[in-house]
Computed example of a mutant assay.
Amino acid sequence: MSRTLCEHCKFSLSTCLCEDLSVLDNKLKIIILQDPNEIKVSKNTARLLTLCLSQCELIIGETQADFSLLETLPVASTALLYPDQDAVLLDDAGIATKTFAEQLSHLIVLDGTWKKAFKIMQLTPSLNNFKKVSFATIPKNRYRIRKAPRADSLSTLEAVAHSLMLIENANTTGLYQALDALNNKQTQFMPEHVKARYQAK
């Protein structure tokens, strides 16, 4: 039996987040490439980003053919958020990094497990046209309700929020408030001993 979903936020009525959402008027356009397996994940933070950002587009797919939009993006002012040894570290305070960040107009983000994100990279050669960006220091993970195999894993929302703060000095408080609300509402019906495990993280 399928759950009844909120018409606006698309979360279940019992975990509706509409009252917890605010919209950030971001200048940097976020392009999210989402693995199809993430669509039905109830704890999907990419969906939250489309509700909380004025400039955000979500595209579902796995291969080059699914992401034809990439061909229209300006190469010089578009970056891909992806860990790489040659990536520009956005939290580097150097002049060159600051100048590069100020010139960005689009940021591509891959939404999926590390394995799925790597698969999208392998099947979408045009992603290699864009400069990669990453972080030298990973902020503390506030997304308690999904297990990640790596200690430096951030949810898509956290990665985008941190990027927007570093690139355009955006006030991302509203994004983290939406994430906290998601954490709380997804755990509200758990037995206390199970809920305690998530809250202890």
Results as ranks from 00 to 15, higher is better:
143 Y>R: 04
38 E>K: 01
101 A>Q: 09
126 S>K: 13
87 A>V: 09
55 Q>E: 15
122 Q>T: 08
17 L>W: 12
50 T>Y: 06
123 L>E: 04
84 D>W: 02
27 K>I: 10
71 E>W: 08
189 F>T: 14
94 G>A: 10
34 Q>Y: 04
27 K>C: 12
110 L>A: 05
98 K>C: 11
90 L>M: 15
3 R>L: 13
93 A>C: 11
10 K>I: 11
36 P>I: 02
190 M>A: 12
173 T>E: 12
182 L>I: 02
127 L>I: 00
67 F>Y: 04
120 I>F: 09
34 Q>V: 10
199 Q>P: 05
51 L>M: 10
181 A>N: 01
33 L>N: 03
78 T>K: 03
191 P>M: 04
120 I>G: 08
10 K>C: 13
58 L>F: 04
28 L>R: 05
158 E>R: 01
47 R>T: 15
27 K>N: 13
3 R>H: 14
177 Q>V: 07
194 V>S: 10
62 E>Q: 14
127 L>M: 03
179 L>Y: 01
142 R>I: 04
68 S>T: 15
100 F>P: 04
178 A>Y: 00
46 A>K: 00
28 L>N: 03
185 K>H: 07
1 M>P: 13
177 Q>Y: 05
144 R>F: 09
107 L>R: 01
60 I>N: 06
173 T>C: 00
154 L>C: 04
48 L>Y: 00
82 Y>E: 06
151 A>Y: 12
196 A>M: 11
132 K>M: 05
102 E>D: 13
197 R>M: 15
119 K>I: 01
2 S>R: 13
59 I>Y: 10
33 L>V: 07
161 A>H: 07
169 N>P: 09
42 S>W: 11
19 E>L: 04
150 R>V: 05
142 R>V: 04
124 T>A: 06
25 D>H: 12
166 L>Q: 13
154 L>E: 07
94 G>H: 12
147 K>G: 14
1 M>S: 15
195 K>Q: 14
98 K>T: 15
103 Q>W: 01
132 K>A: 09
186 Q>T: 13
55 Q>C: 08
63 T>F: 03
45 T>K: 03
118 F>Y: 14
50 T>G: 09
31 I>G: 10
54 S>M: 12
49 L>R: 06
80 L>T: 02
71 E>S: 15
197 R>H: 13
116 K>Q: 15
98 K>A: 10
145 I>Q: 11
28 L>K: 05
18 C>L: 08
156 T>F: 00
4 T>Q: 14
38 E>P: 01
18 C>M: 05
